[in-house]
Design a protein around this nucleic acid. Structure first.
Lengths: 123, 123
DNA sequence: TTTGACCTTGCCCTTGGCGGCAAGGTTGAA
DNA sequence: TTCAACCTTGCCGCCAAGGGCAAGGTCAAA
């Protein structure tokens, strides 16, 4: 299949697929005219990539999952290192979330005070 | 006071202060030699800017808070529009947090399954 | 034959808050 | 005098995952 077809099959864009290729996550053969030709299993591969992206990993992280990208990622976990990376990423995510919740709460507090000031202005 | 002094007083850098000035958040007079000269109250102003940044606003958002940046931002809330912007920003923050929590939970689920697979390998 | 859909590489742009560097002027102190 | 520490403007880089465009090649159908 060609890049446009793969894009449609995976709900992404040709641009993104070239990006994944440049990142070393997928590969392709070339037709005589230079067009990229993908194998059927690349569909699964790309879907797994998208899944891991949606899960909060980066393209760089996903490198580690390469060996198992053609199967069911959610069911067939990767190597030790894959787990390690995923754990680290989980920690990063949790950290980020915590920071943003703190910010949210502070902003919330400011607003609460602001509106209460409006209701009960300081005379 | 000059820029370096202000930077130290507010725990930031000269580079950041020039950035805030370019964003129209602070202003300065110039000495004969071209050096920026700040008033004392700019210290409070910059601290307020930093506070609002930490709270999750952008420099652009903070524009709206300009009229009250010299007082206690947390205690003296801004105009209607300031509140509006803050509310919108709060919504954005909440949205972002929700998305990341979803991602976190999915990654968590993957890992949970992965480690349970290791504990109870499929024979 | 010519249109139009598809493909190629390459390169700049986006968001945000600065960091860092170049290349130069200013000043107080040793 | 000359050095170090300060300051100036201006501009590129960064991080991430692509978007978008230019300029061109390819191919099937009408």
């Amino acid at each position: 299949m060609r890049i446009g077809e793969l894009a449609k099959a995976t709900g992404t864009t040709a641009r993104a697929l070239r990006h994944y290729e440049q990142a070393g996550l997928i590969s392709s053969e070339r037709a005589i005219n230079g067009y990229r030709i993908y194998q059927e299993r690349t569909v699964v591969r790309v879907r797994n990539i998208r899944y891991l992206l949606a899960v909060g990993l980066t393209l760089d992280d996903i490198q580690v999952f390469l060996p198992c990208l053609d199967g069911n990622v959610a069911a067939a976990p990767p190597s030790e290192r894959g787990l390690q990376v995923a754990l680290e990423r989980l920690a990063v995510l949790n950290e980020r979330i915590a920071v943003q919740i703190k910010a949210r709460d502070r902003l919330d507090a400011v607003l609460r005070q602001a509106t209460s000031d409006q209701l009960h202005p300081v005379t």
